[in-house]
Write a protein that binds this DNA or RNA. Structure first.
Lengths: 339, 339
DNA sequence: CTGAAAGCGCTTACAG
DNA sequence: CTGAAAGCGCTTACAG
């Protein structure tokens, strides 16, 4: 039904091969032939069928973008659109399309990745997260599929393309900043401990305390799975202790928003009673009252660099793994003060 | 290099046709043949090449998702991930993939849509926005490509698949709510007037005022393009008038956040001095201080319904256009009070 | 500079 | 119940 290369060939009195070559702008075709063929393509309204082309060239010129759990937090979190923006920009530049995972369980997502890659729908994969013992990453590795990850891989980091912030460093810096303000009892509300980013930020927090000679007190550390569904009570318990923390480092602004809510329920004010600091600098953090101090992690660049890395592997046949460390910096606003 | 249907056929001592049929689980193939072929597929690690299949069945089983301007607000706005969540869920259910637009100008996006559709990369399109005189929508219509839109189309609404809230109705309700609190000088800070959603919400605002016998004062109406880049001064000007508004309806929570910032700069408090209300009920609005009253527009359902509509057209060969009106309701929080 | 032929990996009438 | 053949719409050595 649609007009094909054959229709054009017939109409232009050339062979399909020739039409194919003018599409590719092959230099061996004479200008006048090109001209003629192009006119015919125009009048017939020809448009190349990419499915057919892709089949023969054994490429898809598309990237699979895998997010962890589409039904969950990933979608609430402004991180996702922002990182996608970076990926989009770079992919578009290179004329690559984006194919998105849609599954909502690990099993579903795994199946999708297999289907995308073995089914030749994508030339490479960008993993939007990094966690411990990730079946998907192992699959990609053992099948030698080009991929890059946003976040430090748990293992084999030398052989994997990835982009990351210096999460340990910046978390230490943030903690130090609070220590510098005079805080000694500093809590940490972390994320999912399966995620490397959570681990790294916690590690930075620990190091800063250690360096300052402050003992790490496990009662001041809340990880997501430890408190799952019970964040409110857990946090409130922590705050009701007689030696409650005077400052809290949270691993994400969204978490900070919630914590602030719990504090409010307890009649505690930010920053007068408790200082608080977030990560990821969501657009809205500056609109809070007081505006939330947070760490800008250059989300968009995280995305574009991740795209750059897979594309280098796909197109350049890059052998060695690439890595980018993207800037992170603390943005001081009004949510911290001296204790 | 990859194992194909032929390899399996050879190994299993059957023809490629037979292998193809066991993949399709065709009932005319004997159980023992199926069994044997499946074993071979297993041991060889066969996986079907979708590009090849798609080429012959003339389908792609993927949906193109078009967002307006990937470099802009679309990405800052939590609306996008949430609507995508709805689309994902429905598409995944129907075993459809998602192909995302990546362009950042209207021209680029138009080219992508043409490439996706004429290039047979997608079976249908979901438009994530609706605006006046949209070239892309016209293209989809005249080429009879299955599509649905999130938002009411500017014209030909009877023949187009779309989902929407009753924006006129809910905007009127919101305005009425403020009138009911005793406000008479109510401002409206709108969005891009090219967008139908902005038009509809403004219309609802007008109707409510008219019905209450309050004259519509154009000085109380700010549209995005009128104030572009100058929102701050424009809003502040409005507020410094001797008859400044005592309440403001904003077309999106993000706009409300900004307006609140400007008010704060003027030393005006919410809700003591000015009441304010937003739309779209972003996750963070409840964390503001005071928490922002907003309209929940069921974003996720907007997405899943849009997917449902295109899929009905693609799969069911649906002839008549479908439509869903998704619930919208005002969520009262702390940002409004009597004047 | 151009064409005939083979092939990418599948599906599907048609025939038996 | 199964196979041989044609074909989906392209690209690309090979030959001239």
């Amino acid at each position: 039904m649609a007009v094909t290369i054959k229709d054009v060939a017939k109409q232009a009195n050339v062979s399909p091969s020739t039409v194919s070559r003018v599409i590719a702008d092959n230099s061996r075709i004479s200008p006048k032939t090109k001209q003629k063929v192009r006119e015919v393509m125009e009048t017939l309204g020809y448009y190349p069928n990419f499915q057919a082309r892709n089949l023969v060239i054994q490429k898809s010129r598309t990237l699979g973008v895998i997010m962890e759990n589409s039904a969950q937090l990933a979608f609430q979190n402004p991180f996702f659109p922002e990182v996608l923006r970076g990926i989009s920009a770079f992919a578009h530049e290179s004329k690559f399309g984006l194919y998105l995972s849609t599954g909502s369980t690990e099993e579903e997502i795994f199946e999708e990745v297999v289907s995308m890659t073995l089914g030749r729908q994508v030339d490479g994969i960008i993993l939007l997260y990094s966690k411990i013992n990730d079946r998907i990453m192992e699959y990609l590795q053992s099948n030698e599929i080009p991929f890059s990850v946003v976040g430090r891989p748990y293992k084999d980091a030398e052989t994997i393309n990835y982009v990351d912030n210096d999460n340990i460093g910046i978390a230490a810096e943030v903690t130090n900043y609070l220590i510098g303000l005079g805080h000694r009892r500093i809590a940490f509300v972390g994320g999912d401990p399966d995620h490397i980013v959570s681990l790294d930020r916690l590690e930075g927090y620990r190091r800063a305390l250690a360096k300052a000679g402050i003992a790490v007190d496990s009662r001041y550390i809340a990880e997501k799975n430890l408190i799952s569904g019970q964040e409110g009570p857990a946090i409130q318990n922590m705050m009701k202790s007689s030696v409650s923390p005077t400052a809290i480092v949270t691993h994400d602004d969204l978490v900070a928003y919630e914590v602030i809510g719990y504090l409010r329920d307890l009649g505690l004010r930010v920053p007068e009673d408790v200082s608080i600091i977030g990560f990821n600098n969501h657009t809205l953090s500056e609109h809070l009252k007081p505006p939330l101090s947070s760490v800008d992690i250059s989300i968009c660049e995280l995305g574009s660099r991740a795209a750059e890395l897979v594309l280098a592997q796909i197109e350049g046949g890059q052998e060695e793994a690439g890595r980018f460390t993207v800037p992170a910096r603390l943005i001081e606003r009004g949510s911290c003060q001296r204790p």
